[in-house]
Deep mutational scan, measured.
Amino acid sequence: MSIQHFRVALIPFFAAFCLPVFAHPETLVKVKDAEDQLGARVGYIELDLNSGKILESFRPEERFPMMSTFKVLLCGAVLSRVDAGQEQLGRRIHYSQNDLVEYSPVTEKHLTDGMTVRELCSAAITMSDNTAANLLLTTIGGPKELTAFLHNMGDHVTRLDRWEPELNEAIPNDERDTTMPAAMATTLRKLLTGELLTLASRQQLIDWMEADKVAGPLLRSALPAGWFIADKSGAGERGSRGIIAALGPDGKPSRIVVIYTTGSQATMDERNRQIAEIGASLIKHW
């Protein structure tokens, strides 16, 4: 067993022997301040990774656009098919120029040779490549099948209805392509620590998230040296922004954090800054 596999296998073990965790309302004060600064709703939840206990939450059962955070769930569904012998990570998928959609920095470079399922998941999570996500959605049967996968996990809230990039439209009061912070946090925890996926697939999923290259201005910008984070960000229309993450000190994750916002007129930089400040408060009061 590799060191990384050992780390993920012992996530519940280490967490069980940690000192009790206590909620700190100071972080919620910052979440509410972010709402004021952005002029928009902000949803927040913080779960203990081992027990699933909610440590703090704000608007945990209000719907927010998922945006690209759905790509972690998508690759979880792909990995479940791999575990069941219905898919192979090494299978190569070929596609054409007509398949390319807006923001496809990886797939646009491989029109000639195609990409493997493993490479597509890596591109979808680490670079948020939209064509990679659409190609992977095709392998599982489309958005409705991802929703069905989530329902089978016990998540009857999260739903995907459309493809990239239309799913980022974020129309107010439109339930399409949305989740709730509580539902997303619980589902992410199941994917990373539950028995739904094999140990190898859980490790692969967290490795992809740990290698995320496009979430630097968010929670990662607030992390002290030595902290662990595996995350996936999302951005959408109407001032929408979000991030889902597993993080913790001492090089291992111990909490799940989900943050979503929508309806702001603020710039992307300002949305990023507010999420980073929430992260800084979380870490300060850990």
Rank of each mutant, 00 (worst) to 15 (best):
L146S: 14
G142Y: 07
V42C: 13
L89D: 01
T187Y: 08
L160F: 11
K30R: 15
K53P: 09
G248M: 07
R159Q: 03
A84E: 15
T139P: 06
T138E: 06
P224T: 03
E26P: 15
R189V: 14
L28F: 10
R238N: 00
K71V: 04
L197P: 08
L247Y: 14
I171C: 06
L28P: 13
R238D: 03
V29C: 13
D212S: 12
T126Y: 01
G114S: 06
V31F: 02
K144M: 08
T187M: 11
A183R: 04
L219T: 07
D155P: 05
P165S: 02
E145W: 08
A235G: 02
I93H: 02
N152C: 08
K252T: 08
E195P: 08
Y103P: 02
E46Y: 12
K252V: 11
M209V: 06
G114R: 01
M115P: 11
V257G: 03
D36W: 03
L188T: 12
A222H: 09
G226H: 13
E166Y: 11
K190M: 02
T69M: 06
L160K: 03
L136T: 12
G236V: 04
P249T: 09
H285F: 11
T112F: 14
L191R: 13
S57Y: 11
K252H: 08
L247I: 13
E277H: 12
A182N: 07
S68V: 00
N50T: 07
V258K: 01
R238H: 06
T107P: 13
E108N: 00
G52P: 08
G114N: 07
D48T: 13
A280W: 08
P217A: 09
I140N: 03
M67K: 12
Q265W: 13
E108G: 01
D83N: 15
D129T: 00
L47W: 03
T69L: 06
S128R: 02
R91H: 10
G85S: 14
P60R: 08
E270N: 15
D231K: 05
L218T: 03
N130Y: 01
E210M: 09
I229Q: 03
S68M: 15
S128H: 03
G85E: 15
T187A: 11
T186M: 11
M184H: 12
T262D: 04
G76Q: 12
Q37A: 13
P217N: 12
N272V: 00
G226V: 07
E119Q: 09
L191C: 14
K190G: 15
K30Y: 14
D269E: 08
A225P: 10
E277P: 12
T107K: 09
T138P: 03
Q265N: 14
C121A: 03
V117W: 11
E56R: 11
S281V: 12
A222T: 06
G114P: 02
L150I: 15
A148S: 12
E61C: 07
N130M: 15
L73I: 13
G194W: 10
E108H: 00
L89R: 06
G142Q: 10
A133W: 00
A124H: 02
T107D: 01
A230F: 12
P25M: 12
K213A: 09
Q274M: 14
D36S: 03
R255Y: 13
F149L: 09
K53H: 05
E237H: 09
L74D: 01
L218Y: 08
E35R: 10
G248K: 04
L79I: 00
R238S: 08
M153G: 13
G242F: 02
S240Q: 02
C75E: 15
A133N: 03
N50M: 07
D155G: 07
D250K: 03
E26H: 14
K232H: 09
D207V: 08
C121I: 00
L218A: 09
L205S: 05
L192S: 10
S201R: 08
S233V: 09
N173C: 05
I243W: 08
Q203H: 09
L28I: 04
T139Q: 14
T107G: 01
